[in-house]
Design a protein around this nucleic acid. Structure first.
Lengths: 148, 148
DNA sequence: TATTTACCTACCGTGTCAATAGGTTTATGA
DNA sequence: TCATAAACCTATTGACACGGTAGGTAAATA
């Protein structure tokens, strides 16, 4: 089960991508208000995101948070793993390979491995840009900000 | 993350399938010993499995547990859902559709839905027989128990 | 009637989840 | 220089789930 940390982080990323957060610093207060998430709780989350190299933060007036790459360079999988830790279906596969004595005879392990690979693929193929609203991906009309 | 309940339940099912447990009652003691799982803890698990119509139990001497269908008629997904509850990636989709006010504008919901469908497919397509050791699926040689 | 088995109820320590609370540091700009 | 706005840091909390353990009761058989 993906927890609020992962889900909120994703929403923060989307919010930044859609609010010019790859160019300027956006204060957390604004994000929290738009997303209707407690700012206090978001503080914990964005802190992990900074540590995990998803965002950069700037203190002081005019500060806030900013994407440190272009939106298309983030995969959803990466974002989730920063927040949730390795996406692993069973402890047998996440426990740092000091694993159980049954691993060679275990009848279910191959299935868990296959599953984990599928999940990994799914989330790493999905890019942040896949989650943006269409207008933000391909500005066909009504382009708010002249970018070029 | 699949918990021990789901994993152990799967191993109980496999154990029964491989030890004639679709024809005769197998005492839990035997299963626990073979699987090296605390019998006490397994009691809790098999109880849920009985309630969930995966097994039938018989008290008294000569009693034990038995599959109530043929192994090929169980899907892994069904077994897991009996133990873990609905396999749902996010609470937004498991909370009994009394869900959040953002559901219509949520940018991530479609992804979670897509993900859930993928996971559901994966586990429901997998049958219990897919987890048995080859000899138990297609007894080509050294058939221990004369079955026909 | 002793034995073997399932079945039932209760409890428990640990950890995680989802926050809240309150304070400190850093930078800006008037 | 100094108020302000922002990030940053530490601690705490209540609820709940996880992974068991313990001890007893009921049912069926030989």
């Amino acid at each position: 089960m993906i927890t609020t940390k992962g889900r909120y982080a994703l929403r923060v990323m989307i919010d930044l991508a859609e609010n010019n957060g790859h160019e300027v610093f956006v204060p957390l207060k604004d994000i929290a208000e738009r997303q209707e998430i407690s700012k206090k709780y978001l503080e914990i989350i964005v802190k992990d995101m900074v540590t995990g190299d998803l965002l950069i933060g700037a203190s002081g007036k005019g500060g806030g948070y900013k994407l440190c790459r272009k939106p298309e360079e983030y995969s959803v999988g990466e974002i989730l793993e920063v927040m949730e830790g390795k996406l692993s279906s069973v402890s047998c596969l996440s426990g740092d390979f000091n694993d159980c004595p049954r691993k060679n005879s275990c009848h279910t392990l191959p299935m868990w491995t296959e599953y984990d690979n599928m999940v990994h693929d799914f989330f790493y193929k999905k890019k942040l840009t896949d989650l943006l609203k269409p207008s933000a991906k391909a500005p066909s009309q009504k382009t708010k900000k002249a970018k070029a």
